[in-house]
């Protein structure tokens, strides 16, 4: 279901060759170094996964002295019937889709800009990637500061341009778009780096041939470049998709799900249920529904984007 590395042409042949020579007997000592890592992963992954799956079928509030009570599909049932759940699915999807699409578009545009060298491009590129290494907690606080209605520099700029002050994080219509723009600010550089590298990987003679044929730049882009970018785009989007679904720190530091319920994403609601209310059975069921959603979406997306030969 997930992202894959294409088989490396350089390695595929000799690997097979090695295997033939190696034979079965030498297989296991060769695999021995995997053991510590796999044991560690297994130990860390299996218990929490099973644990959360099991408790998702229990009615359990941490502070209930009576402890857990088996509830079957009780938690799933009330969740699926709860309009607030579907509301947060909607908010999350809007957030994820809008930010990923904008990031891809902007990142690709920037990559085309930097594709051919110009004086100072190395320096600008180095500065451009800075937002994505900033800790999300810092990002949230920084933007809260800059967007403040009273002393925020953004509102001052807007005022200087002759518009009225906007309560970006406090107004019901602005809050979600603002969060999306913050995400776009932080992660466009990520898309940009990937797209730039992908563009630079396109063999020059393909583009030159098209140019000699008299193709317009737009034609060249759509007919010759874009098809070759399919795989990097697929991987980059899938990675952003997965991470955007988990957005938590940013919301924690800015809107806390508000105003009203305009920025209540799935991960925020899970936090509320699990840590504010201690309904951990309910929160576990919530998490599993979210997990299913992410896995289904990522899979469908990759199925659409990737062809058979992309998967090793």
């Amino acid at each position: 279901m997930a992202v894959s590395t294409p088989p490396r042409p350089a390695a595929a042949g000799p690997t097979r060759f090695l295997k033939r020579r190696a034979g079965r007997r030498r297989q296991w000592p060769f695999l021995l170094p995997m053991l510590p890592g796999l044991l560690f992963l297994g130990a860390m992954a299996v218990y929490p996964t099973v644990y959360s799956l099991v408790i998702s079928f229990f009615r359990w509030n941490l502070n209930n002295p009576l402890g857990k009570q088996y509830g079957g599909f009780h938690n799933y049932d009330i969740l699926l019937k709860d309009p607030a759940f579907w509301h947060s699915v909607g908010v999350t999807l809007r957030y994820v889709v809008a930010s990923v699409v904008l990031e891809l578009g902007l990142g690709l545009g920037l990559a085309l800009l930097f594709f051919r060298s110009f004086p100072g491009d190395k320096l600008l590129r180095a500065l451009l990637i800075l937002p994505m290494v900033v800790a999300p907690v810092v990002v949230g606080l920084l933007w809260r500061y800059m967007l403040s209605v009273q002393f925020g520099v953004v509102n001052w700029l807007i005022g200087a341009l002759g518009f009225g002050r906007v309560d970006f994080l406090g107004s019901p219509s602005w809050a979600l778009p603002t969060l999306i723009l913050i995400d776009v600010w932080q992660w466009t550089p990520f898309m940009f780096l990937i797209m730039l590298a992908a563009l630079q990987g396109i063999p020059e003679d393909i583009l030159e041939a098209a140019r000699v044929d008299g193709a317009k730049p737009a034609r060249i882009f759509f007919d010759h470049m874009l098809p070759l970018l399919r795989y990097p785009i697929a991987v980059a989007v899938a990675l952003r998709l997965i991470d955007a679904f988990r957005v938590y720190d940013l919301i924690f530091m800015t809107t806390r799900g508000g105003p009203i319920d305009k920025t209540e994403t799935l991960s925020w609601q899970i936090y509320d249920a699990g840590f504010k209310s201690f309904d951990i059975g309910y929160a576990a069921a919530f998490s599993w529904l979210m997990l299913i959603l992410v896995v289904v979406l990522t899979t469908v997306f990759l199925r659409l984007m990737l062809r058979r030969e992309d998967l090793a």
Binding site: M1, A2, V3, S4, L41, A43, M44, A45, Y47, P48, T49, Y51, S52, I242, F245, R246, Y248, S267, I270, Y271, G274, F275, I280, A283, A284, S287, M290, L291, V294, V295, T298
Partner: peptide
Amino acid sequence: LAFWILSLRIVPPIVVIIPLFLM
């Protein structure tokens, strides 16, 4: 195996924090 390893990244941390802490 590779996919399983990658899928561990998809799980939201909030899901596993209590069991991890117990461990």
